[in-house]
């Protein structure tokens, strides 16, 4: 795994990003004038109602979408360069495991697609990645045989084999029950602390954002934009007891008011 660089630069630098779609034949502004700096190794949550463009923002950073205006810099270069170098890992909401591949082959996928020079794996081996997320015994199963939580663990393992310096997570635990979600939150923080990768984490759960992130970007909809950026000045490692502290609840209430005020 990559060690934290001596000089903490910017992992992501977005300036005046706007994204427009055509929806039902009409132009639609998904994002307008978004500025955001994410430091190397930082854990940042993007929080907001649906339609605020938080997932769109991840797609700009991962080079899945080109912004209409503005500039995006990822790991010191254009998003495309970071993508081709496999410096960016993406964890999707519905795990996006290929149903026809066994779990271990899903985790191997990054080594089997893309240009040959991109396939060089520098991170964990697929077996190590599965062990890290506690899925060694499920290696030979098909995704349909796993629970939702296990599927998300597998998709995190798949993202880890490329040793990403930037991990983009699009509501990865949104479809899970609360107990599984809490457990995976703790495991994710553990993985993040060991890898020191930068994490951009999209969620619409306020407690999840506060529990995980160092900074929370509160977004607003119509058009999608940054409403407020909130610091979470609580040390790591964090455990479930954090949720009972007054500090935690103070930030949760503040965020709730910030989201309410948008209506």
């Amino acid at each position: 795994m990559t060690a934290a660089p001596a000089l903490a630069g910017s992992a992501v630098r977005l300036a005046d990003i706007s994204v427009e779609f055509v929806r039902d034949g009409k132009p639609f502004t998904a994002l307008r004038g978004v500025d955001l700096d994410v430091a190397d190794g930082e854990f940042v949550a993007l929080l907001g109602p649906s339609g605020c463009g938080k997932s769109t923002l991840l797609r700009v950073v991962s080079d899945l979408l080109a912004p209409a205006t503005g500039t995006a810099e990822v790991l010191g270069g254009p998003p495309r360069q970071a993508r081709v170098a496999r410096d960016v890992g993406f964890v999707f909401q519905d795990s996006a495991l290929l149903p026809w591949k066994k779990v271990i082959d899903n985790v191997r996928l990054p080594a089997t697609v893309g240009p040959r020079r991109s396939r060089q794996m520098t991170g964990l081996t697929p077996e190590e990645a599965l062990a890290l997320v506690g899925l060694t015994d499920a290696a030979g199963a098909y995704p349909s045989q796993l629970s939702g939580g296990m599927r998300q663990r597998a998709s995190i393992a798949r993202a880890l084999v490329t040793d990403p310096r930037l991990l983009l997570m699009d509501e990865p635990f949104g479809a899970l029950d609360e107990i599984t979600r809490d457990r995976l939150n703790v495991e994710l923080l553990d993985i993040w602390q060991r890898s020191r990768a930068t994490v951009l984490f999209v969620t619409h759960s306020i407690p999840e954002a506060v529990f995980l992130a160092q900074r929370i970007v509160v977004m607003a909809a119509n058009p999608g934009r940054v409403h407020e950026i909130v610091d979470v000045p609580m040390p790591y490692p964090r455990d479930v007891g954090l949720r009972e502290t007054p500090e935690f609840n103070r930030i949760v209430s503040h965020l709730r008011r910030a989201l309410d005020s948008q209506r």
Partner: peptide
């Protein structure tokens, strides 16, 4: 699944790989 296509694109898969390794299956 549209997310499968996005995953393949994040992995810089070429169009024929997206066809033979995702759509076809």
């Amino acid at each position: 699944d549209p997310q499968t296509i996005e995953l393949m694109k994040v992995l810089s898969a070429r169009p024929w790989e997206i066809f033979f390794k995702a759509r076809w299956y």
